[in-house]
Design a protein around this nucleic acid. Sequence first.
RNA 1: GGAGAGGUGGCUGAGUGGUUUAAAGCGGCGGUCUUGAAAACCGUUGAGCGUUUGCGCGUUCCGGGGGUUCGAAUCCCUCCCUCUCCGCCA
Length: 423
Amino acid sequence: MHDINAIRNDPEAFDAGLEKRKLEAQSAVLLAKDDARRAAIAVAQEFQTQRNQASKKIGQAKGQGDDAEAQRLLEEVAGLKDSLQQAEETERGLSQELHDMLAGLPNTLMDDVPLGADESDNVELRKHGTPKPGEKEHFEIGEALGMDFETAAALSGARFVVLRDQLARLERALGNFMLDLHVQEFGYTEMSVPVLVRDAAMFGTNQLPKFSEDMFRTHEGFWLTSTSEITLTNTVREQITKAEDLPIRLTAQTQCFRSEAGSAGRDTRGMIRLHQFSKVELVSIVDAQSGEAELERKVQCAEEVLKRLGLAYRVVQLCSGDVGFGARKTYDLEVWLPGQNTYREISSVSYCGDFQGRRMNARYRDEGEKSTQFVHTLNGSGLAVGRTLVAVLENYVTADGAITIPDVLLPYMGGQKTIEPKT
RNA sequence: GGAGAGGUGGCUGAGUGGUUUAAAGCGGCGGUCUUGAAAACCGUUGAGCGUUUGCGCGUUCCGGGGGUUCGAAUCCCUCCCUCUCCGCCA
């Protein structure tokens, strides 16, 4: 959500921001709408003033028992009501139109976001670890270990998975390891949150109104959350937080639900792209000054998970054509998958500025200050648990098809050192 | 699912169509007094929007939205939330 006042102050900068996203200039049409809106407000308020004054006089006249005077005043304002209602309706309509226009435009990119058309123009910033060779993809390895797509298909259809036995435990171990790391070493507060939410929450983190196709909806009108960014970020909605309580760092492991509309044919095999998957999310609510530093910090939190698991990865900065709707700047972590012989996204860490804060009406107030500012928000995966499981399988498979458990997971696996294939 | 009661400022809590610009208390902030503090006393006290160089003026907000009325915290419709009893249930 953009600030119309900021656009009014510097329309050229706003249009330049849109251009970086390959969008046409919008400031002229936005400002024209805003002028009309403000004119309508002035008209409506003038009628309201007249009405309030007249009503007060009528009240006074009646209070003094002067019915004749009251009647005379009543006739005097007879025509006011229609005019007022019409003016208010006009104002409501224009405000709604402006709001919808502003809500439909993506966030402006930070200056250091590289220009580019799509993901092929993303910039690799650094690599960590040595990519291993490998022949088998995770679904080939997993078959003998309890990764069961057939049963999942019988239950739910394509793009679901059933994990059995030690593979189920490994998934749980990964999630627990990640949560413990972020809570104990990085100061995040663990949260348990709903996965069904209302429209307003979805609007706050910009899934609505533009991306409703990407999500599932219950027939009662709830949305299944596609990421716990939604619930964690919206915990501060419609509140004024004390500046001293910032930053707020929250983490949760939840199931995430995505319709994958438009992804037909991509990653159809295996558990890279599912309708339901587990993810540990990292959300930060910060003040206006701390956003960029927090972005760097959050990337390191996510990287640390990969480092400790001994997985090779690289960090890429998304180019202007690939940064998501609500973000100002995004880093992706891509883990090395030997079976695919390539790096695949396993985390995406974004700084959103006050874009979501505005949509949620989430503000903070500095000590002693009277005025409030919108909170700045960040989110990132820390990590996608399903894809991490994939990475562990492909990187830790032995010649005989067993999985060597990474050291950091041993406490979470009851000391079990390997997962052996069932013959 | 059935029956009922509610939602008022940071908090408690009055207010059932017009001097309500939302009473009063608590809390917070400022001041007087005091060596200092407490107490007492006095003053002050929210969120937006529009307009203005500024002081200010106007306007909206009593859970959300809509309506009736010259006028709505108050009446009507609708949605949300909380609580009580019953039923069901992990």
